[in-house]
């Protein structure tokens, strides 16, 4: 019974938060998935990566996607980007079905996918140039967006000269300069250290506040998901299905001070209930086989605890 009450608290929204969600729901739908499914053939036979995924994402919303490993969250975002083909259902961007990759959906990858042979500025200019902008226009846009992510001083550096966080800033600028309808981010801060990650999250929210952009953000870090998201799409594994779409009750504007707050804790508790128990169970099957047999290699009096 206690768990039940714990389950419910994340649903309680303050008036301000409820009003915000009402406003979001009134905005037009940018991205819609209808009965989206994805199967592929692997060495072990047919694998169902995604099954019957349904959701609607409104303009200027941040939706985070979380789930246990193998739940297909990367497959989902790659499918949204058009890098992988879905096998059933449909995916609509502004009401029109999506087939291949395109400039209307920008993507930021976990690995630093910058072009190593181009300087930071030329990396950002790449998109506009591919879409027919003149050199001068592309350069002007690139410098503008580099200023926005705070890297205008590094315009002529090569990516390998930058830190991980700076590279991801370039990647964000490179995606946004194309003015996509939606920004897809596949665990973009996963490889960064904790401090840099917090900074990048705050910066991303700053950018989102100032730019007309809708964000779909994949992460395995629950704190990150709660901190960034309006709503969190929770997937379950084998096959990847929607478990729940959670409206995050933490009020905006967000700050790192909210991390210990009651809404934050309630949401995190709910996410952990959804994600962790089955995962631990499944992983234990492999882990059970490993039984360390500890021998004492130090003197009996030489104790560390």
């Amino acid at each position: 019974m206690t768990i039940d009450t714990g389950n419910k608290t994340y649903l309680q929204q303050s008036d301000a938060v409820r009003a915000r969600f009402d406003k979001i729901r009134q905005r037009e739908v940018i991205l819609e998935a209808r009965h989206l499914g994805k199967k592929y053939i692997s060495a072990q036979g047919e694998v169902e990566a995604l099954r019957d995924i349904n959701f609607e994402i409104h303009r200027r919303e941040i939706v985070c996607v979380v789930g246990p490993s193998g739940c297909g969250k990367s497959t989902l975002v790659r499918t949204l980007a058009g890098l992988e083909k879905h096998s059933s259902g449909e995916m609509l961007l502004d009401g029109k079905p999506v087939t291949g990759p395109g400039q209307d959906r920008g993507m930021v990858f976990q690995g630093y996918s910058l072009f190593p042979w181009l300087t930071v500025k030329k990396n950002v200019m790449f998109g506009p140039e591919m879409n027919g902008a003149s050199h001068d226009m592309a350069e002007r846009d690139a410098l503008l967006w580099l200023e926005l992510v705070g890297l205008d001083k590094f315009a002529n550096a090569y990516p390998h000269q930058l830190s991980g966080g700076m590279r991801q800033r370039v990647a964000i600028a490179r995606a946004l300069v194309n003015q996509p309808r939606i920004l897809l981010m596949d665990e973009p801060f996963g490889a960064l250290d904790a401090q840099t990650r917090i900074k990048m999250q705050t910066n991303l929210l700053d950018i989102w506040r100032n730019v007309d952009i809708t964000i779909v953000f994949i992460t395995h870090d629950l704190d990150e998901a709660i901190f960034l998201a309006d709503r969190i799409l929770v997937l379950k594994a084998h096959p990847g299905e929607v478990q729940e779409m959670i409206e995050v009750p933490v009020p905006r504007p967000r700050s790192t001070a909210q991390f210990g707050g009651p809404e934050f804790r309630a949401t995190k508790q709910r996410l952990e209930e959804l994600i962790h128990p089955p995962v631990q169970h499944e992983e234990n099957e492999d882990e059970k086989a490993i039984k360390p047999h500890l021998l004492r290699f130090t003197h009996v009096t030489d104790n560390v605890e």
């Binding site: 058009g82 890098l83 990759p101 920008g106 072009f115 591919m130 990647a171 490179r174 194309n178 897809l184």
Partner: peptide, 17 residues
């Protein structure tokens, strides 16, 4: 690196380019 090609695809790069 395949993600470099994928990044270029999401930026609107055509086949020849």
């Amino acid at each position: 690196d395949p993600t470099i090609v994928e990044a270029a695809l999401t930026l609107g790069t055509g086949r020849l380019r």
